[in-house]
Design a protein around this nucleic acid. Structure first.
Lengths: 209, 209
DNA sequence: TCAAGCTTACCTACCAACAGGTAGGCTTGT
DNA sequence: ACAAGCCTACCTGTTGGTAGGTAAGCTTGA
């Protein structure tokens, strides 16, 4: 145990982190990568950026994520998991369809994955043409999942008479997602989170009447 | 005049273009840059890409646009001009507010600046964090202009009773733009232009009732 | 009229910086 | 002993950008 303390002190000098914190670095890399992708897109971040921020060397990032697309995939997976965790905090069963949609909208107002930074998806989207195949596939799958999620809520709302029906639920869902993603993009670009809130109010307004 | 012909023949050998076509290359560079930005974003295109496509050398691009941000600015300016030209083809004065909005939506269905490629703006948006200052400013100005344009149409539609009123016209306009841009992004990413059409129908539906 | 000199539009050849990626070595906890 | 986690040192390719050269066209003045 004293050993551990000395190791930590040594780590301050050598920059080496004791094994007890071994999972930390990997998580941190993904978090920083996510942030950089939100701000600058997939091609807009480099291993060097992350290494500098973490105070370690570039080669160490390659130890955790050999190829850049490995890290890209990890970012998408972590984001997906983050959404699932976030949704599981709420007792959706007891909610009205409108309340469920409000939970959905609130997710993007979270400080971490928020309208201040833009949805990580958007960071990939606008570079879709030059993305590695494997990332494009995962992105497409993610989009499909997203669309189904929202479609289900819309369907429920229409059936319960909470939402106005305008064409197929899937079409209404697509509309909602497009507006939400667009609003996030605009809010991030102009550094004005209020844009997002405004659009969300409009979406809800158009849903309920 | 025979002189000119000989020069053209010489040009075929040397790769040099006679003065009569001097504006062509510059225009072509901007067009190709626009296309590449639509597909891959601002950082996703290089002078080398353009040079290769045009069959000239990289240094020649620098002759026309010394810095990359010069070319970026030219792309934005050309896009703005393209919109103005496009709008001027229509006799907007005689149209209803709804017809005007339909003209607006149709613009993004044009093969050149279209939902198949995504709005050039989106190519810049998602990299806003790492964009040269001068480009960010122009982009912000563009957004403001865009918002005012749509706000005016919404206002008109609401006053005439064509559109349903939901909050301030500016808020409704922001909503429309967000949905439009988001739809373009999604259509481009999934290579499915139908996404855009679906969302446009939804927007119109929510506007008129 | 026609040569001198400037301009346009391209070229070759280079540069420093940085990208993603690899090989191999060191220290540490178990 | 050995794997985890990080390191140094290096590789190749590409980036935006620069320097200097060249062949044509354009302009001008004797």
């Amino acid at each position: 145990m004293t050993k551990t303390i000395w190791n930590k002190i040594a780590a301050c000098h050598t920059g080496r982190v004791p094994a007890g914190e071994k999972q930390d670095t990997k998580k941190l890399i993904v978090e920083i990568a996510t942030e950089l992708i939100q701000q600058n897109g997939y091609q807009g971040f480099s291993y060097q950026d992350i290494a500098t921020r973490l105070g370690i060397k570039k080669a160490s990032i390659h130890y955790h994520f050999p190829k850049k697309e490995d890290l890209g995939m990890a970012v998408l997976s972590a984001y997906y998991q983050y959404i699932l965790d976030w949704l599981s905090k709420y007792d959706l069963e007891k909610m009205t369809a409108l309340e469920k949609m409000e939970v959905y909208f609130r997710f993007f107002s979270e400080p971490k994955m928020s309208c201040e930074l833009g949805c990580p998806m958007n960071g990939f989207f606008s570079e879709a043409g030059s993305l590695p195949e494997v990332l494009r596939e995962k992105l497409a799958w993610f989009e499909k999942w997203h669309l189904e999620l929202v479609t289900q809520k819309v369907k429920e709302g229409v059936e319960k008479g909470e939402f106005k029906k305008r064409g197929a639920p899937e079409e209404q869902a697509l509309f909602i997602i497009a507006a939400t993603m667009g609003a996030l993009n605009m809010a991030a670009e102009s550094k004005n989170p209020a844009y997002y809130d405004t659009v969300v109010r409009q979406i809800i307004g158009s849903l309920v009447c």
